[in-house]
Amino acid sequence: MFHALFETSWNAYYRIDNDVYETALTTSITITEITMGDILWAVTRSIMTVVGTATVAALFGWLNHWEAIGIIIPAIMVGITFGALGFLFSAVAPHTTFLTLVFTLVASPMFFFSGSFFPISILPDWVEPIAWFMPLTSAVHIAGGFALADLNITHLWAALYMIALTAVIWPVAIYLLRRRLIK
């Protein structure tokens, strides 16, 4: 999540601020294609991180099912969802301090309460629904399903939630980016 989010928030902000996107738009590509390109790179970074972590886990013998290969799927989904989310922030960020806040107030708490470190079932009752609302929780849930070779219908719901969220975030990000670049 961090790698994907970083690529399309900090790095994209750099490209907005230094007119790299503006210059790219003077070729025949469009803003939608720019977001596609950078989200694809966010997916790549996400896969690299997940494969790296999973390889270490496998070496320690924590991943011993062939199903664990499926972890690549939530990695791709995280890359797309958080890549789109990052654009949402870079498109509206007035300065880099804003992006620091995104990482402090959005990304870090999400990382903490998503079930990455401890199961969200141990959270207070009122926090659990909020945790499920965060897209990373769904991704962790799906990854957990593949890692433990224990997949059920809830993993499908989690995947659909992430897809639905991306279907909203991405077009909004494109709209905001267009508003920022075409002026």
């Binding site: 007119d19 790299v20 210059t23 790219a24 003077t26």
Partner: peptide, 9 residues
């Protein structure tokens, strides 16, 4: 097009 800012990566 050469924009006012170089816009190089």
């Amino acid at each position: 097009v050469v924009t006012q800012h170089d816009g190089l990566d």
